[in-house]
Design a protein around this nucleic acid. Structure first.
Lengths: 228, 228
DNA sequence: CGTACCGTTGAGGTGAGTCAAAGTAAGTGG
DNA sequence: CCACTTACTTTGACTCACCTCAACGGTACG
């Protein structure tokens, strides 16, 4: 839902109450437990959505990119945010107060349809399958993460890619449902196999095909459970 | 979104194209990979939503109960179902063809609001945290499942509960991101601890408080990763 | 009374968690 | 520019919960 998607009438309503704000790395757009007062849409940059449980165990469950909505669940369901949204790379973020959103829904069906399509675009639940499934070895989960993060513009014709991954080992671990030490060891393994080279925040993938092949290795054994 | 939630005008439109169908145990409401043509709403009963990956590994990611919507993601995003919906206990299911849903959204803002609230009610992503997190021992994950499944009407005043869990070991395993053998062992452990007794499809919880306490055991060690 | 699942049990192996300690990078202030 | 602090990363040794495999027991059903 960028401006370019809006019709003239929608924009009029939006401009009256919309706020665009720039957040920098590590800023929190909203925090778990705080009151949800509106809807956010990232216009640029990346952010993480994470949850912390009663025992301080941190779970990252979504990487948010440009054009994606956050805060909608809290907006229509409960009124407290169930997660924290924290910025990875500087973001321009639109804020729509709850009243504005509800007003737009009531008055502009076109807005609603785009809104729903934006919601359906949320890849969180889907990504969890390849990033958090413990039957997949950590090394492969890390490959899957790279494949999700690589954009076409990161790649050269030869199949080599260079991407920025401005995210701590700790947060990669929280995203892949494992521990920082295991991330370190997985990175080391990928380096030795020549599949991906991590240096600081920069990852170099010499051969995208090899990375893809690695992440599609069948599990060493068995056939898993079929039913019905 | 049961009939009781509908306004008169909504119902008129709905009744023209709505189909209610009864499904029996193990029936599939829709299948992964098939074309999504509409929206489903369970009026009664329970169903499982599961996904199977390229290596036949089955992941159950949601238990659907009465009043919940399924198929919406495929409806507004891609047009192929990403999961299979399979019935646990006989269900009455409303089917709303895609066109009807879009028409209602365009014409009845009140419908849209209820629709969005129903979507926000989806506990799938939230439940995954307590059911599929591998830092939680299988035994505790099983306790969490019981706590999610127990309804107030299953319980007596004394704190004892009896519930039906018409679900295979294999599917419990797919839901808890583990293996059938581990489920068997966890069930055995809970029995020995006197927390829950599994007999066929019936589970007896002598003391709900004890079950709750068990599922809130802090992890044996450490403080997990804090950041930012 | 097979056949076909489903569930249980035991033995054995291992990937990843845990812990502790050392190494490195990134501020901060004088 | 250099001490000093603090936070992050890496490494190695150890441990363990769970997976895997294989065999057996139950139960439903034609």
């Amino acid at each position: 839902m960028r401006d370019s998607d809006m019709t003239a009438s929608d924009v009029t309503v939006l401009e009256e109450s919309m706020v665009v704000q720039t957040y920098r790395r590590n800023d929190k757009i909203f925090s778990q437990g705080s009151k949800a007062t509106g809807l956010f849409c990232l216009q640029s940059g990346n952010a993480l959505l994470w949850h912390m449980d009663a025992f301080k165990y941190k779970t990252v469950f979504r990487i948010v990119g440009a054009g994606e909505l956050i805060g909608h669940r809290s907006l229509f369901g409960e009124d407290l945010h169930a997660a924290t949204a924290q910025v990875l790379t500087s973001c321009d973020v639109c804020y729509y107060p709850k009243d504005t959103v509800l007003q737009l829904i009531d008055e502009f069906p076109g807005f609603t349809r785009r809104f729903l399509r934006a919601l359906a675009r949320d890849r969180g639940p889907r990504d969890a399958l390849v990033l958090r499934s413990q039957h997949i070895p950590v090394r492969i989960r890390l490959c899957n993460l790279l494949l999700l993060m690589i954009k076409s513009e990161d790649c050269e014709k030869g199949g080599a890619c260079i991407l920025e991954l401005p995210i701590l080992r700790r947060d990669i671990a929280a995203l892949l449902a494992t521990r920082p030490e295991s991330i370190t060891r997985a990175i080391k393994a990928l380096k030795e196999e020549g599949i991906a080279l991590f240096k600081g925040r920069t990852v170099t993938v010499p051969n995208l095909v090899a990375l893809y092949a690695e992440s599609n290795q069948p599990p060493t054994k068995n056939e898993a459970g079929l039913s019905g």
